[in-house]
Design a binder for these strands. Structure first.
Lengths: 258, 258
DNA sequence: CGTAAAGTTGAAACGCATCAATGTAAGTGG
DNA sequence: CCACTTACATTGATGCGTTTCAACTTTACG
């Protein structure tokens, strides 16, 4: 890792993401701008967090793509999730437990570091922010569940299609989709396979199928979804799990509710 | 659902579970005892929570076995996790979002209901309790991740073996394993298949394999793990993801840290 | 240009799904 | 108490989706 100068306005993706989870007043927004204390630029294939480490900072992806993974005893590596701009790498800090998975940069990644102490202090004075973080954690859980569904109940075409829909949606939420269809996805087919439980060869063939049907195009790490509705239909994608659901007469952590 | 008389000392599994996540003083314990306001007995195959509902109560399994699941567009049903005695059915309440999955009783289940308002009030005065709940949520996340790993990277024998190891461990943690090896698991082979992404027939053959090797026995919903170490080895089971890891200089939500 | 990394293709094998039948045990009603 | 029913477990045959292996092609890049 290479240390950088202090935060510029590079934390906008964090603000954008949190804003999609809760509405904030000006003081909240100011607090969010001050959250990131340090920015670190990580090269592709460098580790951002290592399993078991007891970090005292929360890592946020500000730019680039990262993944969580775990090495399995049979020698394979399973990718359990991705973090795009605006995403927290690991929510372990919420329960003051250590990091349970390693996080790897898949492209050059700009990481924002927030000290845990600082964050708890700020969250104390800004309950809205706390709610937004908890919602982000809840969505993280939903992402895992949806991956379980893919791996357990969907075939290769559905898995790949669903994955692309999800990325399309998530990147769109932070303004990284051009013209409503095109976005960068710096992943090799092997890496897609490690996430979706498919061999590299089969990912390749599956992508070809989707291309032949003019549903997507994908070259050089650039995906273009030619038929958004078609892709969603064919993969059973329903974005609901990605957005905070209806407000409930809610649970509150400080002085007020969501 | 059939409403029951007020809580007896049937909430002990909840206390037992939370105690494994954080140490409590007497006042905390008293608070935990007063947490469950209502007990409801649910028959096997009745729904405990329905997807999309905006419950104002948190549901805890006090006795029996339940599962979370989602219906997939291709007609299948994917079980995404199980809740045993002491487990919270759904952590959606933490982010004041609705319930994102349905929860189904797989055996007669005694459900404890805690009103969300009550819980936030109690958590406010008992930060230890809050930490324990957040840790339970973190373990819930770990369970999902481990299921992703099973579905993505393990073959049938490993999946079933790993699943049995996990249940053995989780039930052991709340005192439901007899003689260190035997426990009730009121699941059909079809249901195991729905959780592990295998057909019923293949679950059957996989269990036979494990029986032939004298690693387990399983009849009438009673599992006996004859070779605990062997089962863990063969399935790559490592209990770490089930227990709160090292304390970190932690994140605090109220006045003090973990 | 030359080399390495990623993508593509074909052939063969395998794990697991599917279908369909049979077995077994535990109710249920006459 | 026995015939009937229902739910679940078991078994065999067959086929598909996916993996594996190995070669080959293309692209990126110094």
């Amino acid at each position: 890792m290479i240390d950088e100068s202090l935060p510029v306005q590079q934390t906008s993706s964090l603000l954008r993401r949190l804003s999609s989870l809760h509405s904030f007043d000006d003081r909240d927004v100011a607090a969010i701008h001050g959250l990131v204390e340090r920015i670190v630029n990580v090269q592709a294939y460098e580790e951002i967090l290592r399993e078991g480490s007891t970090e005292s900072s929360v890592a946020v992806v500000l730019r680039g793509l990262a993944c969580r993974f775990k090495l399995v005893s049979n020698g394979k590596r399973q990718i359990t999730g991705f973090a795009v701009a605006g995403d927290i790498c690991d929510f372990g800090f919420l329960s003051s437990s250590g990091v349970t998975q390693s996080v790897l940069a898949l492209s050059p990644v700009m990481v924002g570091l927030i000290s845990v102490n600082r964050l708890s202090a700020v969250a104390e004075r800004h309950p809205h922010l706390m709610v937004a973080f908890l919602r982000a954690a809840a969505i993280d859980q939903s992402l895992s569940n949806e991956l379980v569904i893919s791996l357990g109940s969907r075939n290769a075409v559905e898995r790949v299609g669903h994955f692309l829909c999800e990325m399309h949606y998530r990147l769109g939420a932070v303004g990284l989709v051009r013209g409503g269809r095109e976005f960068d996805l710096p992943l090799t087919q092997a890496e897609i396979g490690e996430a979706l439980g498919l061999s590299t060869v089969h990912v390749n063939r599956t992508l070809q199928t989707l291309r032949q049907q003019h549903i997507i195009s994908m070259r050089n790490g650039v995906v273009s979804v030619l038929d958004v509705a078609g892709l969603a239909r064919l993969s059973g994608f329903d974005a609901q799990y990605l957005s905070p659901i209806v407000e409930t007469p809610g649970f509150s952590l400080g002085r007020e509710a969501g």
